[in-house]
Design a protein around this nucleic acid. Structure first.
Lengths: 212, 212, 212, 212
DNA sequence: CATGAATGAGAGTTCATTCAT
DNA sequence: CATGAATGAACTCTCATTCAT
């Protein structure tokens, strides 16, 4: 989750004058990394709560750093947003992988993925917005998601539990579609019904070919 | 500076109703009404393209009027947005009514509604955003939509072609959900597949009760 | 008061089609004058109520004419304001003249003028503002006022009832000063006390010379 | 773009209290505080010259800061105006207190207050407007002023040098009234005459009761 | 000549980003 | 290298004045 960074070669900078030799070894690096993490954490929380349009100040405030520090780590709000969402997206996908690996039944794996997607994204405004609008925060994210879904689909197809002709794209789009649903309807009971309907439409009970 | 004006979808405000010579009394409002229509048309187009957050100046520019004119017709950006969306929404719903009335088969009426919803709203960002977030631009719009969908559902239910237990709310949310899908996926062929899947999940081939 | 206007050479314009030849002689002139009067009346009322910062539209609305008509009669808001205030000022001054002429006692004439000034101006925001800030809407108005006050002063002086050395300027400024008082204090009882104080300070009970 | 900054009349916000080395802890706020002071100084000057309706940009320009800086320090124009006026008002009242305390003779204390009020407020449009219209920029300011005037009145009353029945409200209103006078009349010599007249009207030479 | 719709230069305010300390 | 104050373009909205009808 933490990115690869160049090793700690920096000497103590000119400011740390008084105290002594104790902090000489690596006084800055740790702080910087901690700040970076704090910023991402705050950004993630703030974006999740208020969406992508929040004031950057709110993130700086919440992370306890100044604006300069924030902009030292991330050249623009856009970059911070993207990274934050990537991270959330990745975390979610990782968990999805684990779940799927632990679920022997192919169909249960697929429907479990849908359920987790909705549950996770329901509480993250910015993430969901990106999922709704472009399918994910990054091309790369969307791609990874596609790959994962493709595996799920493969398993289902080989087990003959999914409607013939359903493509990976279909599943990707459908999951995005349902994420949106979570916002329209208020509570969980309601969107679970829609999920059930969509999943049922995907089942091998339907053998008719899909259009085109 | 003056662009070719879009067609007048706005209904004239109740003055020029009868065909004869009676319209001679009020020759003044002619171009004012044209401006008003131009503003609405421009606003509709701009909101559709860029979403509800565009600069009002862009709308003024596109409609070929000054800011003052715009604000003479609409006291606030909010009002203009609401009216534009209401109009689009109403036009869509009206057309939906007509179509449904002309379709004898209940299931075809329902699926026709979905198809038209997706086709119409697909290219209107602001409208879709409102549909996604609150179900429509206005409480009244949402209500009308709900009533209409309820009729469709009733017809299907009495014909026994819809899965038992499907509520009007389910259908409303599902249509919103699919509208969003249209943006994620690019072309028509793709979202038609998702629509088919969802509709199949609604069919009476599934008798299992929905959650809760 | 009515401005010189070009004679009534205009034929009946293209709109007045139906009625007949009866209105041919001088159909416009009367209207114009009536409009002008209506505008001034409305402006006076509106300025009195809301001060000089009101929207010109309010005046047009209240006078029942369009903006074009208003601006045909008065090239700018400033002009309208000035004329309206001049008129009010003149009316007030005229009345003051009459009262003074009907009051034999010099001191009573002077104090009566003060009282009337306060009473009248108390209910005219714009007029009072101009009086407070510049002494009147126009140099000419201020001058007329000065001349009138000078007469009052003369009478008092010859009767020996006014403090020696009090100049016309003193009285003019003092009346303006007291007008302002009317706004600070709420009700009539309060500003009458201040008026009494000031007038007492003007009385011949004080024989000390004024500064300078 | 950067103008020479006016002197710092603003009290530093309670940090740099003691003289020693303790001030080393917070070196940051130095120029921010200077900016804040510059803004207040500019605002005070601009409001004094042009009244409360000036463009905020003029204040920003005059203080040599951008709009953002101005709005960082003051959330709204209203706030800036209020603070500026409060400060001016307080400074004036403080000075008035000192003068009054240093003046043994009660009547001289009272008349000295009037003189100082006129001298100070004469050249501050916004301050004077607020004094004229509401008695001061703030309820609190008005109250303090009233309390102070009440002390002056008490002293005069106990010394028997003030006309019986003169209330604090009378004095407050009278001072406001005279402040306005300063603007009407041009030079100092003229308004001193009016002040003399009013003060003489307040003297115990008049024993007649005031109205009501 | 009346009408009132159109104009557009600002008004107050916000916020992503930069830069002096 | 952190800080958070400074920046200024951009936003929504107003209103004195003009101009097509």
């Amino acid at each position: 989750m933490s990115e690869p960074r160049a090793a700690e070669t920096t000497a103590a900078p000119s400011t740390a004058t008084t105290v002594g030799a104790s902090t000489a070894t690596r006084p800055r690096r740790a702080d910087a990394e901690r700040n970076r993490a704090a910023i991402i954490a705050a950004a993630t929380a703030v974006f999740a709560e208020h969406g992508a349009d929040v004031d950057v100040r709110e993130i700086a405030r919440r992370s306890g750093v100044g604006m300069g520090t924030l902009y030292r780590h991330f050249p623009s709000k856009e970059d911070l947003l993207r990274l934050s969402l990537e991270q959330e997206f990745t975390a979610w996908l990782t968990q999805a992988h684990e779940r799927a690996a632990a679920t022997p039944d192919p169909w249960q794996a697929l429907s479990g993925f849908f359920e987790q997607a909705l549950t996770t994204q329901a509480h993250n405004r910015a993430l969901m917005d990106s999922y709704i609008q472009t399918g994910g925060p990054t091309e790369s994210c969307v791609h990874k998601c596609r790959v994962f879904i493709d595996q799920l689909r493969e398993r289902c197809e080989q087990a003959g539990v999914i409607r013939p002709g359903v493509s990976t794209e279909d599943l990707l789009a459908l999951s995005g579609s349902l994420c949106n649903t979570v916002q329209i309807v208020g509570d969980e009971h309601r969107w679970r019904r829609l999920m059930t309907i969509s999943l049922d439409g995907l089942s091998s009970r339907h053998l008719e070919p899909l259009p085109s």
